[in-house]
Design a protein around this nucleic acid. Structure first.
Length: 209
DNA sequence: GAGGAGATCGTCT
DNA sequence: GACGATCTCCTCT
């Protein structure tokens, strides 16, 4: 694996295809957030694909609105929405400009800036890394709302942001990590089209939500 | 450790 | 005016 500063940013082509393929390919990649106080990074361990106008569970199912316009735009852009009055969720747009589709990020394994992310989440971490339990680390970014809070993602700051630019303070990179096995299951927390197997996660990874 | 209910507000009907 | 691609806290075991 390459150090963060040498890892390759995923380009527009990566996202310009079926969300199901993008959701699977994103597993093992890193979400990188640059802040004034340091770099935050987490490895993507769980995603969900949302297929656009033909997918009853997708925000884009009923057509384009001011809220979901990013999903209809060019691939590789951040779609951030606010849910249940408290949480933000981060997605990336897929497929060409004019065609709706996206992938929801559901869980990250903390990689860099762990202390800063824990603080943003209000999680108490032991100072010595060897004393930190998995059950505590999971509270940082295991879940869509949690990882957004850990990375400081909000709609005002990040919606419609280009994730494929090396200069962006929010981007997704490939550090060469190879995923051994991927498991597919139905999506979580939805009612419509709930049986479609469109949730992808790294088999055996403890940070899956 | 599991299960249930409340929180809380932007977006669309 | 209703509800949601969720999380946390509280209670009970």
């Amino acid at each position: 694996m390459k150090p963060l500063t040498r890892a390759a940013v995923l380009t527009t082509d990566f996202y310009n295809r079926d969300p199901r393929r993008v959701a699977r390919a994103l597993l093992g990649k890193l979400i990188v957030r640059e802040t004034p106080t340091g770099i935050l990074a987490g490895r993507i361990v769980e995603t969900e694909a949302y297929l656009g106008t033909g997918d009853a569970a997708a925000h884009s199912a009923a057509g384009k609105t001011a809220r979901n316009a990013v999903l209809f735009g060019p691939p590789g852009y951040a779609y951030v929405y606010f849910i249940y009055g408290t949480h933000y969720c981060l997605n990336v747009s897929c497929l060409p400009d004019g065609v709706a589709g996206g992938v929801l990020f559901r869980a990250l394994e903390p990689v860099a800036g762990i202390e800063q992310m824990a603080e943003a989440r209000g999680v108490d971490l032991p100072e010595k890394p060897e004393l930190r339990k998995i059950s505590t680390l999971k509270k940082i970014s295991s879940g869509p709302g949690r990882m957004s809070e850990a990375l400081g993602v909000t709609r005002a700051r990040d919606n419609d942001k280009n994730l494929t630019s090396a200069r962006s303070d929010l981007r997704i990179v490939d550090d060469g990590y190879r995923v051994r096995r991927v498991t597919v299951s139905p999506r979580i927390g939805i009612v419509k089209a709930a049986d479609d197997p469109l949730r992808y996660f790294i088999a055996g990874n403890p940070f899956v939500s």
